[in-house]
Design a protein around this nucleic acid. Structure first.
Lengths: 343, 343
DNA sequence: GCGGTCTTTTAGATCGATCTAATTGCAGTT
DNA sequence: AACTGCAATTAGATCGATCTAAAAGACCGC
C-alpha cells in the first residue's frame, strides 16, 4: 500500500511547476532575493517544504564558481595534534556553511599529489595543507597548475610569498630554554629533528638562538629520525660523559616521553636531577609520570586561523599574502622540577 | 597577438575540438572505453596532457548518480579515538578513489541534523555516522527522508536493521573482569556511564554478565556524567566503607586516568593494592604512571570495516543488512599488577 | 489612450560532463 | 549493386541549478 512517492528526487523544476511559477522564480526564492513578491515567496516555500525539496549544490556549482567546499591535507590524520587542528577548521567551516574534505598524505609526497588532484577534480574552492616531509617547490607548482588557492599550516615549503599559519616554534623553544636556565640548568640537550621541514628547522633555530643568548654549550645535540626516534647511541654517550647534560628540550611530546623512559632506565630521577621539556601539549603529556612540561602550540587555534585565512583569500584573491604566527605557551609541570624555580 | 590561452579551465569540449573529435569520443577516452580506436585514444590523451585538462567530477555527478564522496559524522573529531577511526576510513577511501567529508556533531543532535542536511546537499553517496548522544529514531527518519545510505559505527540508534560496525564492548569488559578475578580480585567496581548510548549500555551489560558469572558483588557501580566525569561522592563513600573495592573497570581510558589520580590522592598504591583497567587503548594509557591496563577496541579497524561496508551497500543497495562486531583485546600493563597473574 | 517608471516574472542559454540512439565507414557475402 | 555485420564515432538530450536580458503587469500623470 505504498503512497505515490516520486522515486526521482524533487528538483527545482518540480517545485516551480507545483507552485505555478517558473524555475527562475523558484531559484530566486531559494536565494532569498528581494525581487520576489512576498505572497509568491511564501507559496513557493510552502511547496518546497511539502515536497521535501533538497537543494542540489552540485548543480549550482556547475554554474557558479564556488562549491563551498575546501580540502584539508594532513600528513597524519590519526595524530591527535592534527585532529585538534581539524576540529578548529571544522568549527569555522560550520559557521561559514562550508564542508571539508579530509585527506591523509601520510608524509608521502606522491600520495599528497594524488590527493590534491582528487580534491581539484571535486572542485574544492581551496585547500589547507600541511606539506608532507620532502615536499618542495614541486608542491607549489602543482597547486599553481591546479589553480588551487591554498593556505599552508604548521609547515611551509620555502619561505615564499604564500598564506601561512603556524606557531612561533623558535620563540617557544627559546622560552623553554630560558626557563631551564632560570631554574639553574646549564647543560641543556636538544633531542630531535633539526631540518626535515620548516617546523623542525624553526625549533632548532630557536634552540641555537637561546644557546647563544645564554652562552650555553653548543654540542649537546641528539639528532632525530623518522617516527619520533632519536640517535640513542649519541644520547647514551652524552649521558655517560664526564660532564653530562642536566636537562633536555625535545622536538615533541612523544619524543620527550621516550626520552623520559630512557632516563629512568639509566636510573636518573626526572624532574629533579634532570629536567625534560616536550612540545605540543598532547593529552599524554599531562597523563605521564612525572607530568611533562611542554610548549603548547594551540593546534585548534591554528586550525581556526587557517580556515579564516583561506576564506578571506577566497573572498578576495587579490589581498596580499599573510603570515599568521601564533605564540606558544610554556606549560610547566613536574618533569622540569616545577618547584625549583629560582626566580 | 594573444596566444590562445583560455583563462577558463579546459573543458572536455576544448579537448575534443583540439583533437578533432566529438565530446562523446573524448568522454569515452576518459572512461577508457574499449570502443575507441587505439590511434584516436592516444591522440586525445596527448591533447589532454598538453592542455592540462582536469576532470570535472561535479559535472559528471550531475548526470550520474554517484559522486564518489561520502560523509563521516562524528561526535568529537578532536578525540584521538575518533581520529584513528577517521584514518581507517581514509585508508579504504584512498584505494577506492573516494573522498570523505568530515563533520563534527559535537554530541549535539541539532548540529548533527544540520550536518547531515549539508552533506545531503553536497550529494554524498552515503554516510558513516557515530550517532551523537541523544540521537533517537528521529535520526533514522532523517536519514530515510534524505535517502542517505548509511553505516552506523561504534554506537547505534535502536537495535534495528541497519548496517553497523563496532567492537564487542560487552565481551571486552567481561574478559577484563575475568582477568581481575583470576588475579585474585573480587570487589570490582564499574565506573562510568551505563546508558547514554548503545556503547555505554553494552559495557555495562558486559560488566553485569561477568558479575553474574563469577558471583561478584553487584552494588559497586559509580555512575558517570558528561565529559568523562563520575560521581566522586559515591566513589569516595565506597572507598571508605568497611569492605572497600579492590579494583575498578572504567568506562574509558580518560576516566581510568582520572580514577587513578583520585586513588593516588587517597594514598592507594595503584597496581598493587588496587587494580585499574580502562578502555580504548589511547596513547596516554601507555604513557601514564603506572601504565594503564586497557581494553583495545581497534578504532582503525572499525573505520576500515565501516568504509568497506558502506561501499558494499552502495554497490548493492539490496544486500541484507550486516552487523560487524570486532573482538577487543585486553592489553595488560602495570595498573592491574601485571606480575600478579595467578594463572 | 499613451508613454514612462517600477516591480515582478520568465524564457532560454549555460556550466561540463554522460548517455542513448543513431550514423558512418568498411569489409565480406551474395 | 545490394545487403549484412561490425567497429568507431557522434549529434543532441539530459542532469539541476544560475544568470542575463527581456517581457509582462501595475500604476501614474497628462
Amino acid at each position: 500500500m505504498k503512497k505515490s512517492f516520486s522515486l526521482a528526487p524533487v528538483s527545482l523544476l518540480a517545485v516551480a511547476r507545483e507552485a505555478g511559477v517558473s524555475r527562475a522564480t523558484a531559484s530566486l526564492v531559494l536565494r532569498e532575493s528581494p525581487l520576489v513578491a512576498t505572497e509568491t515567496r511564501e507559496r513557493v516555500q510552502e511547496v518546497m517544504k511539502r515536497l521535501g525539496y533538497i537543494y542540489n549544490r552540485g548543480a549550482a556549482n556547475l554554474r557558479q564558481n564556488r562549491t563551498h567546499t575546501i580540502g584539508l591535507v594532513l600528513p597524519n590524520i590519526a595524530n591527535p595534534f592534527f585532529s585538534k587542528l581539524t576540529a578548529g577548521v571544522d568549527e569555522i567551516n560550520d559557521t561559514n556553511d562550508v564542508v571539508c574534505f579530509i585527506a591523509n598524505s601520510n608524509e608521502s609526497v606522491d600520495r599528497q599529489a594524488r590527493q590534491l588532484q582528487r580534491l581539484r577534480e571535486h572542485n574544492v574552492d581551496g585547500v589547507i595543507i600541511c606539506p608532507a616531509v620532502g615536499s618542495c617547490q614541486t608542491l607549489l607548482d602543482d597547486l599553481e597548475r591546479l589553480k588551487l588557492p591554498f593556505v599552508q599550516a604548521l609547515r611551509q615549503v620555502s619561505s615564499d610569498e604564500s598564506d601561512y599559519v603556524a606557531a612561533d616554534y623558535a620563540t617557544g623553544i627559546e622560552k623553554a630554554v630560558t626557563h631551564l636556565v632560570r631554574t639553574g640548568r646549564r647543560r641543556i640537550m636538544f633531542v630531535g629533528n633539526t631540518n626535515v621541514h620548516s617546523a623542525a628547522q624553526a625549533r632548532y633555530e630557536g634552540f641555537m638562538r637561546a644557546v647563544a643568548l645564554h652562552h650555553l654549550p653548543q654540542t649537546l645535540i641528539v639528532s632525530g629520525g623518522a617516527e619520533n626516534t632519536y640517535d640513542e647511541a649519541v644520547f647514551d654517550t652524552l649521558l655517560n660523559s664526564s660532564d653530562p647534560p642536566d636537562s633536555a628540550i625535545c622536538y615533541n611530546d612523544i619524543m620527550a616521553l621516550n626520552v623520559i623512559n630512557r632516563l629512568q632506565a639509566h636510573g636518573i630521577a626526572v624532574g629533579k636531577e634532570f629536567a625534560v621539556i616536550g612540545m605540543d601539549d598532547l593529552p599524554q603529556a599531562s597523563a605521564s609520570y612525572p607530568a611533562l612540561t611542554t610548549i603548547g602550540t594551540g593546534p585548534r587555534d591554528i586550525g581556526r586561523a587557517a580556515a579564516n585565512l583561506l576564506q578571506a583569500r577566497l573572498e578576495n584573491p587579490e589581498r596580499s599574502r599573510e603570515h599568521i604566527i601564533l605564540s606558544p605557551q610554556l606549560i610547566i609541570r613536574a618533569s622540569c622540577g616545577e618547584n625549583a624555580d629560582l626566580g
